[in-house]
Design a protein around this nucleic acid. Sequence first.
DNA 1: TTGTAGGCGTTATCAG
DNA 2: CTGATAACGCCTACAA
Lengths: 350, 350
Amino acid sequence: MAKQKQDEGQAPKLTINDIARMAGVSKKTVSRVINRSPLLNRETRDRVETIIRDTGYVPNPQARALALGRNFLIGLVYDNPNVQMILSMQKGILEALHGTEFELVIRPVDRGSNLVMEDIRSFVTRQRLFGVVILPPMSENDALARMLDEEGCRYVRMGSAVLDDPEHMVASNDREAVADAVRHLIAQGHRRIGLIAGPHGFRSAQERREGFELALKEAGISLPRSLVADGQYTFESGLSASESLLDLSPRPTAIFASNDEMAAGVLYAARLRGIAVPEELSIIGFDDTPVTTRVWPPLTTVRWPIVAMGRAAALKLIGTAIGEDAEVNEPSMFSSTLIRRGSVAPPATS
Amino acid sequence: MAKQKQDEGQAPKLTINDIARMAGVSKKTVSRVINRSPLLNRETRDRVETIIRDTGYVPNPQARALALGRNFLIGLVYDNPNVQMILSMQKGILEALHGTEFELVIRPVDRGSNLVMEDIRSFVTRQRLFGVVILPPMSENDALARMLDEEGCRYVRMGSAVLDDPEHMVASNDREAVADAVRHLIAQGHRRIGLIAGPHGFRSAQERREGFELALKEAGISLPRSLVADGQYTFESGLSASESLLDLSPRPTAIFASNDEMAAGVLYAARLRGIAVPEELSIIGFDDTPVTTRVWPPLTTVRWPIVAMGRAAALKLIGTAIGEDAEVNEPSMFSSTLIRRGSVAPPATS
DNA sequence: TTGTAGGCGTTATCAG
DNA sequence: CTGATAACGCCTACAA
């Protein structure tokens, strides 16, 4: 009885008119049902809803988009070196979107280009996006946020610190997380601890560095400039940045790398030099990417709930639309945890 | 002179009517210009095109979608354990889509569910997708291909073997690639070579296994059942699958793992047992994912051109639409290459 | 080669 | 509370 003509090849999809006719009401009434209009007779609504359910009718998104001037698409804007993060974000967002009428459109951009802004503007403007999620470091661009506001496009920024109002922000607390990690190192007895910083212009790099410095200061440990090396969040940069640290004499007994890729680089460099990890060198990374458990020894690292954050970001965006009031109160701040594995040990007592 | 009103907050976007008026022609003529209709007066076309360029007019995709009954969206359908592959595919597809009016909508599905088919159907049907790219192992589902055909949705399948017509297929030659890799092992002197196979139901697993067997047969080497272990393409499965192989006596002197994640698992298992790689055990993986260069020693593996394949898939889909005839002839078969790194050496002469 | 009328499926306006 | 009627912006007939 239900679902007629669904396997006749090109199923002639039913329209709002069909439903209206079947229900004996006007199309506008059907439209009201679809859009949850509050002023509707109880039984009228029920009747229409029953028919919609029985027929399996689904409103045409293209027509809705045209009439509303707004599409049911969420955009994901990023320019990020961390592939694992992108994928995890996608996963979280998609989880939130699942079962709704929203779809995810992904959009890598080039933050170095001077056309990024126009690029993104035309993207949201053309597609009439419902909203966008912006990944770091693009999310740190305030001008971008302003522009989106002007264009009337909702947005949520992901970041390592609170950069915007709660409704526009989902953040992790990198600084405190790193401070915790370094405190762990200190508690093990380390005093000469090296830092491989992330690239300039990344807020996350700054936050992590500040967390690092904070923990040292608390413990009254000074940080000579030579113990800080610059990295680019890549394996190769971690590898080469660690060279200068490992050349030091005395050598640092521990190194905090601002992300796992660079930590893997440190581990690799240590292996090349025959430095035993963790006996002669402790290493801590950040992100808890799969690589941490593939290498030997597995890396101690900081885990942040990327998937949950992606989900929260998407829910902030569509919360009102799907009528789940509870979701509007998605948290804006997520906390990270230290994952202890095999790359940390007390320093050798030499 | 060009681009007026682009920073007045809510820029009142111009429509085809505006252009028509400015050019002194009917909107249909403008429409013809947009859609590259061949029957148009040369100068009329030029005049309209000039105005379009000067004003920065862009046709409204929503309206086009409604009128055409087809959206300018490409869908990416996948249910895949290999995150690196998904991201590389996205990259390739996006490269091809860049600069066109197409956007990429991503859609993970659950191939285990008995609603996959209806899920995908409603996805392409609702969004009126221009076309979809299907990743393995979903791409191996012939019923899916038929369904998409019925729904009038273009598609391109990615796979480890040719499963469809060239216009619908972008494949890598896994079998031959693996045979080459194993020949390399044999050339080094290995005779007891173990295989960690991929999961049942994955064509890639089957192809790689056949390539493995082919190379052994060529060399007249028999393959006792005990030298084959089943894996699931995950690190953990590789780790546990290798246990049975490493317990053997005599132990295999080399192991081919059907992907890098499992190869990393083998390496990890070897380390746990104190087996030196490559001195006592050679390992080859497949995929050339980043992990191969993060571990020690770096893994010899097979590289297949995922990004290029993704690009080709997208171009096959949109080639006709963007009028680049050359692109219609995108290759359907891509070949892989053996990447020699540090995990292979001649067997110890014991 | 170009223009006119009508439709794509939905929502907004404004009466009733 | 509900329903005609007119958008939304573009495209396909068909006519000129």
